[in-house]
Amino acid sequence: MARLTPETERFLRKAVAGLPFRKRGEARDELRAHLEDAIEQKVAQGSERKRAEREAVASLGDAAELNRGLLRAHFGKMWVLRYLYSKLSWWLPELGHIQFRPKFMIWTHTSKYPHQYAEGRYDEIIPPLGTRTCFTRAE
């Protein structure tokens, strides 16, 4: 399987978002195969590989439009609900980048050790077991 650029992978993820799990994998593999065929054809015609990949992706049109078409095909009139769900699923990974940890740690420590905090005796504050991992995003 040829390696595609991260932009193309993102395009594929967007195009199949919201489809049922098994169908999503199949649709992504199908679109990926289409792109690989189109890239190979363009390269054979003398195009440079990166350019061929960009053109192949462009020929599939807008990822959101393709996504709406696939959702309509699979869910009929209920496609709007799945579309909203898929939109949300694009944003959720982005929310993972928000760091909750500092605020949470301060809140925990000030409530459990108010005097130590007020008097600046930070060395006496021992982080309670488990709080470190509560809202910390795995690297």
């Binding site: 199908e30 289409h34 049109g61 807008d62 393709l66 078409g69 696939l70 309509r72 095909a73």
Partner: peptide
């Protein structure tokens, strides 16, 4: 076929 419409049409036929 505008390729972006080809796959939704195929999936609809499958459904």
């Amino acid at each position: 076929f505008k390729e972006g419409t080809l796959y939704p049409a195929l999936h609809r036929l499958e459904a």
